[in-house]
Simulated assay, not measured.
Amino acid sequence: MKIGIIGTGNIGGVLARKLKAAGHEIRVANSRGVDGVRAFAEEVGVEPVDIRGAVNGADVIVLSIPLPALSALPADLFASVPAGVPIVDTSNYYPGLRDPKIEAIDQGMTESIWVTRQIGRPVIKAFNNLLAYTLAELGRAQGVEGRLAAAVAGDDQKAKETVMSLVDRVGFDPVDGGTLGESWRQQPCTPCYCCDYDAQTMRRALALAVKGRAPVIRNELPRHFQLLGPNPSHDDVVAMNRSFNPLD
């Protein structure tokens, strides 16, 4: 497939590498234009484009930029994109760590519902509940014991199945997270968020999520990261996330 990726940070950059390795035709863009993404694109072997080049003619579009940047995208960016093209939202809301406060989300709006309102198109929520290291290093072939899982939520079943196939191709078991309105179950500080679980445990974690609990934990994240120190290991971050919502 032709896949356009806007954002080449921790998640977008890894997805570009892994989806290219899986045989897809990848275009990458960021806020700095073609020249701003050219060095990364040449390193990975993908095509550097501007944000309009990333969406035009794409079979799948991946948005992997911070939430505030999503609201700054051109209002007509997706005007010519056919309705059936999946638009993947990998973002997470981190107030106090990276993002300014977003009142609608603070008042309870599901993050990806907020995203759909910013871009004027429905999205599929995916790849947001994996740490970048997990995505880059811990993928396994289908059927391998201990394969980890990633949740995928959305309202368009066909689009969701397309995205779930990409999750599988990059080395993870896709787990259906329900509708987009239910994607709060995979937001930061929920039981399934960045805990490196297999598919069976991921389904259990999604079911155990309690609406309204995660934002309380999330607001304490700056303090928790201070306790971990300036360069926490992947295992330390996973252990911290698991401690927020013990499954036993």
Rank of each mutant, 00 (worst) to 15 (best):
N128S: 13
G9P: 07
N92Q: 07
P174H: 08
E47V: 14
I217V: 14
L131W: 11
L15Q: 10
L166G: 01
R169V: 09
D236M: 12
Y133I: 02
I119H: 05
R204L: 15
A214T: 03
I61P: 00
G177D: 04
R38A: 15
C195S: 11
W184A: 10
Y197P: 00
I51Y: 00
S64T: 12
G154F: 05
S80P: 00
G212F: 12
N128I: 10
I26V: 13
L138T: 08
I11M: 13
D176P: 10
G7W: 10
A58T: 07
L221S: 06
D155I: 07
E42C: 03
I87G: 00
A209P: 06
E43F: 02
Y197H: 12
V44R: 06
G57E: 08
L206N: 03
V14F: 01
D235F: 02
G12F: 08
R38Q: 13
T201E: 11
A149K: 00
A58N: 05
V81W: 12
D235W: 03
G13E: 06
A150H: 02
T201H: 01
T8R: 11
Q226A: 15
D76V: 11
A150L: 13
G23L: 09
I5C: 01
G53H: 04
R169F: 00
G120H: 07
I124M: 04
A22W: 11
D89F: 01
G139R: 00
F172H: 01
T90V: 11
F78L: 13
P188Y: 05
Q142K: 15
K158V: 13
T110A: 13
E42Y: 04
E25C: 03
A214V: 06
P66M: 10
R218T: 09
N56V: 10
Q142S: 14
E161D: 15
I119S: 12
I217K: 08
T190L: 08
V216Y: 01
P215C: 09
R204K: 15
S233F: 06
I26P: 05
S64L: 12
L247V: 13
S165D: 13
T179V: 03
P66I: 10
M109V: 11
Q226D: 15
D173P: 08
G108T: 05
I102D: 01
T110H: 00
G171T: 12
P174V: 13
P82S: 11
D236A: 15
E145R: 13
K2V: 11
V60P: 04
S183T: 12
A199S: 14
I11T: 14
G143F: 10
R169G: 09
G33K: 07
A29T: 06
L63F: 07
T110Y: 00
I5R: 00
D50V: 07
I119R: 07
Y94N: 04
G9K: 08
G33E: 11
L70W: 01
I65R: 03
T90S: 11
G143N: 08
V60G: 08
G146L: 09
I102R: 00
C189A: 13
